[in-house]
Design a binder for these strands. Structure first.
Length: 478
DNA sequence: CGCACTAGTTATAAAACTAGTGCGGTGCTTTATT
């Protein structure tokens, strides 16, 4: 098949980006494929092209409603009209209508939760699928086990005999994430298409301080003196708000972003950041997925991310245009305990698990049993999944392992920060890469010259060049 | 677990201690007996 001709005729591109053609060929050969490609390397083409030549529909499982809406909108803008994002944003009647004629859509975006619904998966089983895509597939590791158990149920759905090839897409995957993807999505001898995670234009630095006031002062000075746009990652919503206010008082165009804000506000803030109306964003880890902004110059961490994979993912949002970018992480020794607490806090404790299990065994309804066992709503739904699949002893063992794993991952992150080794090399070796040539501005361990470009604040674009408010709202509404 | 904040303590007054308290991330889905 002449893929280059199809690429030009249907998509208008002269040539493939690195990795794309290989992934597409694997899929056309009916092989399960895991593609680790940096964001902005045209991941969506990897399923759009095969989808357009194969018979049947492409099912794309996406972690966020906003992400699927965004991608569906882009596809429609590019002329593909047979695309639909099925989610709770749609009125019930509309959803029913779409479900009734599902086979007429070429590209169907859904969440893992939607896939778990009987009515929907039955419908889906009756139509012909040419390809199943799991976008941002690392979410299985990040969320599946203790937060969004429906990620684990995707595998149950895919068990069906004669399913089409499966494509798992992600930008960052360490060995554990790769194993989780293969195992829980029940992939068969998948081909792994990798692209190096090294980003030579990003320089890393670790800044050791002794209090959060010192962190605040450092951030204020840094943001005042150096170029944006940038993202500041904080560990709590409160801290993100607090930093945003501090910086606003300095006259910086900045807003905070976290899950405690209204969805509409979140969309507008993200859009303003993309358009350049906001120079900085102070955010929790809620910010990032689906943010297509190439010119982010800095990422600052006010806290310790829970894993190296999460850290590299957040840092990787800088410098996608290939121009120099700086990643700075502020660290004080007590940060380890704070991070440790956060990652352990939502996991059900052994006593709660035993209690819940006993109450269900005695015939209490899941609702009342979870209340009696003082479980959170999330904890309950997670346990419900495990109780459908495992015995009590197996569940306890699984949670024990999960907890140990989380601590170990955090320990590795601490090691990256305090170990005194080259940060780039240490991070790359964590992903099993040897590390290529060392850039001049590598990291604070290797020694950074005064990074001059950081202090060359450019003139801001005039307001006239930007979109008007009305246009922006129209864009938001798609 | 650690941090920020509050209330209570001291004792011829105000600020400085101490003990106690609350808080800490990520998202999907809700179609029914009133």
């Amino acid at each position: 098949m002449d893929l280059n001709r199809i690429l030009l005729e249907r998509f208008g591109y002269e040539s493939f980006r690195p990795g794309q053609e290989e992934v597409i060929r694997h899929l056309l050969d009916k092989r399960d494929t895991i593609a680790i490609l940096p964001t902005g390397m045209g991941k969506s083409l990897c399923y759009q092209l095969p989808g357009s030549v194969l018979e049947g529909s492409v099912l794309i499982i996406s972690p966020l409603v906003s992400l699927m809406e965004d991608q569906a909108m882009r596809m429609r803008q590019n002329g593909e009209k047979r695309v639909v994002a099925l989610n709770s944003f749609l009125p019930y009647s509309e959803r029913q209508r779409i479900m009734g004629q599902l086979q007429n859509y070429k590209f169907i975006f859904i969440s893992p939760e939607m896939l778990s619904q009987e009515a929907f998966s039955r419908k889906l089983n009756r139509i012909r699928l040419s390809l199943v895509v799991i976008d941002e597939a690392h979410c299985i590791s990040q969320w599946g086990f203790d937060f969004r158990p429906d990620y684990l149920r995707i595998g149950d759905f895919l068990k069906l005999k004669g399913r089409p090839p499966l494509l798992a897409l992600t930008a960052t995957a360490d060995e554990k994430v790769l194993n989780d993807i293969q195992h829980y999505f029940k992939m068969e001898k998948p081909i792994v298409q990798r692209h190096s995670l090294d980003r030579p234009n990003i320089s890393y630095s670790i800044v050791e301080v002794h209090s959060s006031q010192e962190k605040t002062a450092w951030i204020k000075e840094r943001v005042a003196q150096t170029v944006g746009p940038g993202i500041i990652y904080a560990s709590s919503r409160k801290r993100a708000d607090e930093l945003a206010i501090e910086l606003q008082l300095e006259g910086i165009a900045v807003q905070s972003y976290h899950a405690g804000k209204e969805q509409d506000d979140r969309s507008i803030i993200q859009e303003q950041f993309l358009m350049g109306d906001l120079e900085w964003i102070c955010a929790t880890n809620a910010f990032g997925m689906g943010v297509h902004k190439d010119d982010i110059r800095q990422v600052i961490h006010d806290h310790l991310p829970p894993t190296i994979a999460a850290y590299i993912q957040e840092v990787g949002r800088a410098g996608r245009d290939g121009q120099p970018a700086a990643a700075s992480l502020l660290y004080m020794p007590t940060d380890e305990q704070t991070s440790s607490f956060i990652i352990q806090s939502d996991m059900p404790r052994e006593e709660e698990i035993r209690h819940y299990h006993r109450m269900i065994g005695e015939g209490h309804s899941p609702g009342s049993a979870s209340e009696l066992a003082s479980l959170t709503e999330t904890g309950k739904r997670v346990l419900d999944y495990y109780m459908e699949h495992y015995s009590l002893e197996e569940i306890l063992l699984k949670f024990h392992r999960l907890s140990t794993e989380k601590n170990e991952q955090l320990r590795q992150m601490v090691q990256l920060v305090t170990g005194g080794l080259c940060i780039r090399q240490r991070a790359l070796s964590y992903f099993g890469e040897m590390g290529g040539t060392k850039p001049v501005e590598c990291c604070s361990i290797c020694g950074l010259e005064t990074v001059k470009w950081l202090y060359e604040k450019s003139i801001k674009p005039s307001a006239a060049e930007k979109f008007s408010w009305d246009e922006r709202i129209t864009n938001l509404l798609g």
